[in-house]
Lab assay of single mutants.
Amino acid sequence: KLLSSIEQACDICRLKKLKCSKEKPKCAKCLKNNWECRYSPKTKRSPLTRAHLTEVESRLERLE
């Protein structure tokens, strides 16, 4: 599967780190437990900047 097509777990399953069936409108866990089942939009991760990478590398060197 391509990364862009990976389905996201519902908010509660993601928060509780449960295996989500990803069914809509309610996944199996939410249906069974009568929880409100919501699927928040995916958040875009910002790409690493060179400055951040350099900072992490220098912190790693100090720890070694």
Rank of each mutant, 00 (worst) to 15 (best):
A28P: 02
E36S: 14
C20W: 01
P47Y: 06
T43D: 08
K26I: 15
E7I: 10
I12G: 11
S58I: 15
C30T: 07
K16D: 00
K16S: 00
E36L: 10
R50K: 01
A9H: 06
P25N: 04
E61G: 13
K17H: 09
I6Y: 12
C20Y: 04
K29A: 05
E55S: 12
P25Y: 02
L60F: 06
K1C: 14
R50H: 02
R62D: 00
K42W: 06
E61T: 14
C13Y: 08
L2E: 15
A9D: 00
K16H: 00
K24M: 15
E36C: 13
P41V: 07
Y39D: 03
L18D: 01
L53C: 10
R38C: 15
I12R: 12
C30G: 07
W35A: 15
K24S: 15
S40E: 03
C13N: 04
R62P: 09
N33D: 06
E23V: 11
C13Q: 00
R50I: 04
L63E: 04
A28R: 15
R45I: 00
N34E: 15
E36P: 14
K44L: 15
Q8C: 04
N33H: 11
R59A: 10
S58R: 11
L2R: 12
A51H: 10
K16N: 08
E64T: 14
P47T: 02
P25E: 04
I6M: 13
I12P: 11
S58G: 14
I6A: 11
K19V: 06
N33E: 09
L18W: 10
T43S: 10
L48Q: 04
R59W: 02
C27E: 00
A51N: 13
D11I: 05
S4P: 12
R38Q: 14
E7T: 10
C10A: 06
K24L: 14
N33F: 09
C27N: 00
C20G: 06
K17M: 01
W35Q: 14
I12M: 10
S4F: 13
K17C: 07
A9R: 01
I6F: 13
L31Y: 14
A51M: 10
S4Y: 12
A9L: 00
I12D: 10
T54S: 11
C37E: 02
E61K: 10
K17G: 01
R14V: 04
C10K: 07
C13W: 06
C20D: 08
L15T: 11
L63V: 02
Q8E: 02
A9E: 00
K1L: 13
L15H: 11
K24E: 14
I6G: 10
T54A: 06
C30P: 01
L60I: 08
S46W: 01
S40T: 10
P41A: 08
C37M: 07
L31N: 14
L60S: 08
K24A: 15
S21H: 00
K42D: 06
A51F: 11
E36H: 11
T49N: 01
C13M: 06
K26W: 12
P41Y: 05
L53H: 01
T49L: 05
C30D: 01
L48A: 01
E55M: 14
S58M: 14
P25W: 00
R14E: 01
L3K: 04
K44T: 10
K22H: 09
K1R: 11
E64N: 02
Q8G: 06
K32I: 09
E64D: 09
E55H: 10
R14N: 00
D11N: 03
K22G: 04
A51D: 06
Q8V: 06
K1H: 11
L53G: 00
R45L: 03
E36D: 14
T43M: 13
T54P: 08
I6L: 10
D11Y: 08
C13I: 06
K26D: 08
P41M: 08
L53W: 07
E23L: 08
D11L: 05
C37Q: 08
R50T: 05
L2W: 13
E7Y: 06
C27R: 08
E36Q: 10
K24Y: 15
W35P: 07
K44E: 04
A28F: 09
S40A: 07
S5G: 11
K22W: 01
L15N: 11
E61L: 15
K22P: 06
K44P: 15
T43A: 13
E7M: 11
K42S: 08
R62E: 04
L2P: 15
A9P: 05
E23F: 09
T49F: 04
K26S: 13
K16F: 07
E23P: 07
L2D: 15
